[in-house]
Amino acid sequence: MNLPQQVKVGDELPELPIPITARQIVAGAIASQDFEDVHHDKAAANQKGTPDIFMNILTTNGLVGRYLSDWAGPTVRIRRISLKLGAPNYPGDTMVMSGQVTAVQDNELEIAFKGKNGLGNHVTGTGYLTLEESA
């Protein structure tokens, strides 16, 4: 668990490799109620010009949330996530999450994060967290 007073700008979050499988992509799409065919139907994805099904943005967002809150511990509140998508997450790849603390004010933190796969950066962005005092 991280206490606000222990966190400082420049601290790095431990890397987290996430295997990208068809199962992960489909499970994320369904859990996020996203039934667009490019997230579960390879033939349909091919027709739209991509080589395989690929992860939807909500799953990416969910994985980012998991990465940030796992690091920050049980007292975290995620206030905002702002992200940009780059290289798609296709089955068979691995996305490695990394992050760094870029601002600390009182109990509010700003984290620059990145998820990199074999094609480049899948996601880059900033997470804004509040660490509540534990009860």
Binding site: A27, A31, P74
Partner: peptide, 16 residues
């Protein structure tokens, strides 16, 4: 149920 499905899919085990 829906939260469980999401957390399972994302591998999110945050206790809250």
């Amino acid at each position: 149920t829906q939260i469980w499905q999401w957390c399972a899919a994302m591998g999110d085990t945050h206790p809250e």
